[in-house]
Write a protein that binds this DNA or RNA. Structure first.
Lengths: 261, 261
DNA sequence: GGCCCTAACAACGA
DNA sequence: CTCGTTGTTAGGGC
């Protein structure tokens, strides 16, 4: 569930909580042999300090003082817990447990066990972040994949980093564009509307989440969304909300949104 | 159109006609720069003798006395013409014209220009030939792609070499298996039925074609097929033949064929 | 709700 | 009725 807004807040709050701390113990219980050889992970982390925590697309990047870098993806249900070393064992569904020299601890948890940790991954082309989308960039992306539905393009992490199912619906409603519009058919006005809507929706969500859950490092608040959600019946303007599977994703939209095909 | 049976007969007949002959002239008029650099082709062929012509999957392999190897794919409409050198220029749609020292000549023709010639292609893993499919092999292939429709698997040249759209329908009817069955759902009896049907259908077709067109090096006879064909209304047992697009291919089958899903 | 992998399908070209 | 490639969608598994 966590998308750009939640992850931005998590990154800020984790920074405040753990930057500068020295790691004294690491316990990885994630999927065996998938992303990280456990010993290598421990070796790379113990005795280092945490220099920085920042969001990169839908992942959190944790940079250590020894130049090792962790990439954490929360997938559907992952989250963090800030606690003390002696209370770590009480936690359920721990993927990665990190203990600090001062007795505090940080755990990555996921009831579904899907969250991933990657150590120094080699990364290719970095996608444009959701907060940095320009009209030129979006225009070019739409030209490149003209027959792709605009919703598919917005949630494509190789095109724009950070937007998921929920916020794509919010962005498209704000821009008054149907999720089923074809990218190549969007006129310049529609591109402009998206370029306005993307950071507006995301930044407003960041602020709302900060206000409501100032220390959040897990979970989500989604009750301020305007069209995406099973309990919403109509948009702020009174239009009936349509729920439909689009690309295997539950999508909410209204007739206010123009279909370009 | 030509599939394993036609190509088997063509290979036999070409062998009889041209093996041992010395090539004196080569004229390639295929797609420029696609499969063969023309000069290299001429250089490799002139002065050599033809040692062997054999079918490999849906292609014909022509081995020359200088160890050069030609792979010819007839695609949809390609075929051969055995003629004399002085009559070559009367032919239409010639892709490759080869003149022999004795005044005879062989032309590869294709009205659509799709037939291809490859010189000494580097070939990776060779697929199992349609005439050499065993239960173990087919079983393993079905396990590897369990969600693939069995018709798709049969015509996949990386799995089995030589079977195309028409004969896949004949084979599936003989085995009484619906083309839309999923490979991974076929029980051992169904695998066995296929392993019986594949060579039976193909070999019977080879014999029928030999009987009807003993010298064929082009074209096709398909009027002996039992379910695949636009004019057939019912199978030999009287079941109504269903015509349906399956994987973008016109497919004929009947309700006699069991669907495993 | 996320990502990856496989497969289906359409379109075009050769 | 062929094959290859490209682009997009749909489904299942973790």
């Amino acid at each position: 569930m966590p998308e750009l807004p939640e992850l931005t807040v998590f990154a800020d709050n984790l920074s405040k909580a753990v930057v500068g701390k020295e790691i004294v113990k690491v316990d990885y219980r994630g999927k065996k042999s998938v992303k990280v050889p456990t010993e290598e992970l421990t070796r790379s982390m113990v005795a280092a300090r945490i220099d920085k925590v920042q969001r990169v697309g839908k992942q959190l990047l944790v940079r250590l003082s020894n130049d090792a870098t962790l990439f954490i993806h929360l997938m559907l249900k992952g989250g963090f817990v800030l606690t003390k070393t002696e209370e770590l064992q009480q936690l359920d569904a721990v993927i990665l447990a990190v203990s600090f020299a001062d007795g505090s601890a940080l755990a990555l948890t996921d009831p579904r066990g899907m969250a991933t940790v990657a150590l120094n991954p080699k990364r290719g082309e970095q996608p444009r972040d959701g907060l940095k989308v320009t009209a030129d960039y979006l225009q070019a992306a739409c030209q490149r994949q003209p027959n792709k539905m605009i919703k598919a393009l917005l949630v494509d992490q190789e095109v724009i980093g950070g937007i998921g199912n929920a916020y794509s619906d919010e962005i498209l409603w704000r821009a008054r564009i149907s999720p089923k519009s074809l990218a190549g058919k969007l006129p310049p006005e529609a591109i402009d509307a998206l370029v306005e809507a993307i950071p507006a929706v995301l930044n407003e969500a960041v602020e709302e989440i900060r206000r409501r859950r100032p220390d959040a490092v897990s979970g989500e608040v989604r009750d301020f969304l305007k069209v995406h959600g099973p309990d919403l019946k109509s948009s702020p303007n009174g239009a009936r909300i349509i729920k439909e599977q689009i690309q295997s994703k539950v999508t909410y939209y209204t007739e206010e949104q123009k279909l370009y095909r």
